[in-house]
Each structure stands twice: as C-alpha cells, then as structure tokens.
Simulated scan of single mutants.
Amino acid sequence: MQAGQVDDLTDWFEQNPAVKDKLFPSSFGAATIDGKIYAMPCETLQPIVLYYDKRAFDKIGAQPPQTWGDILDLVPKFNAKGIAPFSLGGQSRWTNMMWLEFLFDRIGGPEVFQAVFDGEKDAWSNPVAIQALGEMQKLIKADGFVKGFSSITADSNADQALLYTGKAAMMLHGGWTYGSMKADGGDFVSGGNLGYMNFPPVDGGKGDPGNTVGNPGQYISISSKATPEQKEIAKKFFAGALIDDTAVKEWVGTGAVPIIKGADKEFANSEDKDFLGFVYNIAVNAKTFGQSWDQALSPTAAEVLLDNIAKLFQLSISPEEFATNMNAVIGK
C-alpha cells in the first residue's frame, strides 16, 4: 500500500454499496489503512475459540468461565483433580499469542494493538499492555497450563488430543481445530462433550466482549500496474463469482463459514450447524475482528514478537522487558 503497488478501492466500494453490505463489517478492518480500503475481503473466517470439555467441568461441579476472574478461580480446582486447566502447544509460539490478543482487547479494546500497528512510539508500554502481560504471567505462574506446554507443538495436534482425551479442561485455539477434533477425537464432538464460547470479559476491562481475534477473512487486492481492462475484470469478479450464492454453498459444503451475510441459511443441512452458527454469529456481530498479530505486523516485527512471547510464557522476561524489546521494532 505505502509503495503504491495496489489500488485504493474505497471509492469503488462507495459506488457499489451492495457489495460492501453483503460482507461482514468486521472483515474490513484488516483491509483498511488510514480509513482507506485496499483489499476485497473474501472467502472464509476463522475466529479464535475457547473450547472446553463438559466432562471436566462436571467432575469439579463448575460452569464455564464467564470472566477472566473465573478462569483464575478454576485453575486450582482442575489441578486438584489432576486435570490441566488449559492445553497449549506452546512450542509453536503463535498459539501463545492468541491469549495476548484477547487480553489486550478485553482490557483496553482494539485501539491498544492498533497503536502498535500504526507505529506509535512506545505503544507496547501502554499501561493496558503491561497489565495484560502481567495477567498472562499470573495464569502461567498459577499452573494454568499443562506441564511441559513449551515443548508441545500445535502442528502435531497434540494440544487438541489433550483436550479430547480428558487430560485438559480447556483450550484456546482456532476455529479450524473443530474439524480435526471431530475427525480424531472419537465421539468427543459427536457425543456432545465439546463446548465452545467466545473469550470472556476481564473484570473492569474496557473491551467489548463481543469482539474476536484470528483470521477475519482472506484478501485480494488489485495491482496498480494492471491495465484498466484487467482492473474492470477483477472488480466484476469481486462483485459476482466471489460472493454469489454458489460460492456460499461451496464454502459451507467444506465445513467453513464464508464472510457473507445470510450464509447461515445454508447451515441447516450440516451436522455441524450449531458450531457453524456459533462462528457466524460471533463474526457478524463483532464490532472488531482483530487480525492475528503475526499477520498484521511486518515479518521482521512478527518474528521478534513470537520470540518475546515465548520468553514471556517461559517467565524468562518481565512484562516491562517484553514491552521494551517490542518497542524497539515498532514500524520496522
């Protein structure tokens, strides 16, 4: 965008309101820079979901957490029963990041990370950021995660296995893991043992508990070097085949949720209609659907971020040290 390699599509969307109105409002966040739209949101979405094992909650006689305080209160109860409160594939690093994305949002709202994205000096030192990082380490110090989480990988699906085999009570992970738990977890999903919810609010936090984070969609831009004819073809594709009823049916048929309003009408015949409806309602109602930080930042900043998140979770750096390290790569 800054190099002028893609077209500004703001005027086109204003001239074609039916196209924009057909898409989830929250999907435009990742396509918008300084109030200008540079990409067409398309295809499907994947919010981060708080999954839980209903059997584990029955064992301790408790309900799923309604607040961050509830999460902290549940930790010793699960540990006393020999059940890890949370599964986590910490070696993959980006899995840890999902926790921070929600805590930043729930405590201070989307503008806290937006300041980082906008390149504001020392944005990581925002008191909200320091508080969120501190809350994260509080959960880690309380043994909120399965022992040895730093050596567990998400790519192997070992973190999911800990949930569906009853070794962990909860797991914060992408919407895409529903399908693999259904396929690999025996009757865990089909038997009604899997529960799911959006991340709860933090007591006293300013963030809207209806917000979510993850992957708000896929995005297609138009090259500024394309000919006028090529640009018109692309725009016809945007307004037609990319978002028509056939596209909706095909995406739902794969078990995915397209970012198109009214797509939920296609869920009726799916055996996963409850989960699809849950994902759809989160996304269509979210005022903000935050893009994964490692996707929103430059590759350089993203790598430093993941490295420091790993250190934060290993308790080898403090929240303040994390902020200092990250402030050094703002805008890079």
Score class of each variant (00 low, 15 high):
residue 10 T to L: 12
residue 11 D to H: 14
residue 12 W to Y: 13
residue 12 W to P: 12
residue 13 F to N: 08
residue 14 E to W: 10
residue 14 E to R: 15
residue 15 Q to A: 15
residue 16 N to K: 14
residue 17 P to E: 00
residue 19 V to P: 12
residue 20 K to C: 11
residue 21 D to M: 08
residue 22 K to A: 15
residue 23 L to W: 05
residue 23 L to H: 00
residue 24 F to A: 08
residue 25 P to Q: 00
residue 26 S to T: 01
residue 26 S to C: 07
residue 27 S to H: 04
residue 27 S to F: 06
residue 28 F to D: 03
residue 28 F to V: 02
residue 30 A to L: 10
residue 32 T to D: 06
residue 33 I to G: 09
residue 33 I to W: 12
residue 35 G to V: 01
residue 36 K to Y: 08
residue 39 A to K: 01
residue 40 M to L: 06
residue 40 M to C: 06
residue 41 P to K: 01
residue 44 T to K: 09
residue 45 L to I: 02
residue 45 L to F: 06
residue 47 P to A: 03
residue 48 I to M: 12
residue 49 V to F: 07
residue 49 V to N: 08
residue 50 L to H: 04
residue 50 L to E: 00
residue 51 Y to Q: 09
residue 54 K to C: 10
residue 58 D to P: 09
residue 60 I to W: 13
residue 61 G to E: 02
residue 63 Q to I: 05
residue 65 P to E: 01
residue 66 Q to T: 07
residue 67 T to K: 05
residue 69 G to F: 01
residue 70 D to N: 00
residue 70 D to R: 02
residue 71 I to K: 09
residue 75 V to E: 09
residue 76 P to C: 08
residue 77 K to C: 09
residue 77 K to A: 10
residue 79 N to M: 05
residue 80 A to Q: 05
residue 81 K to Y: 12
residue 85 P to L: 03
residue 88 L to F: 11
residue 89 G to D: 07
residue 91 Q to S: 12
residue 91 Q to D: 13
residue 91 Q to E: 13
residue 92 S to L: 05
residue 92 S to N: 06
residue 93 R to T: 15
residue 93 R to A: 15
residue 94 W to G: 11
residue 95 T to G: 10
residue 96 N to D: 12
residue 98 M to R: 14
residue 99 W to P: 10
residue 100 L to F: 15
residue 100 L to M: 15
residue 101 E to R: 04
residue 108 G to C: 03
residue 108 G to I: 02
residue 108 G to R: 00
residue 109 G to C: 06
residue 109 G to V: 02
residue 110 P to M: 03
residue 111 E to Y: 01
residue 111 E to F: 04
residue 112 V to T: 07
residue 114 Q to P: 07
residue 117 F to S: 13
residue 120 E to S: 09
residue 121 K to Q: 14
residue 121 K to L: 12
residue 121 K to N: 11
residue 122 D to H: 04
residue 122 D to R: 05
residue 123 A to L: 06
residue 123 A to T: 00
residue 123 A to H: 06
residue 124 W to A: 08
residue 124 W to Y: 15
residue 125 S to Q: 08
residue 125 S to V: 00
residue 125 S to D: 13
residue 126 N to E: 07
residue 127 P to D: 02
residue 127 P to T: 04
residue 127 P to Q: 00
residue 128 V to F: 07
residue 128 V to T: 11
residue 129 A to E: 01
residue 129 A to C: 13
residue 130 I to K: 10
residue 130 I to M: 10
residue 131 Q to C: 08
residue 133 L to W: 07
residue 135 E to H: 11
residue 136 M to W: 14
residue 137 Q to K: 03
residue 138 K to E: 10
residue 138 K to T: 05
residue 138 K to L: 09
residue 141 K to G: 11
residue 141 K to Q: 12
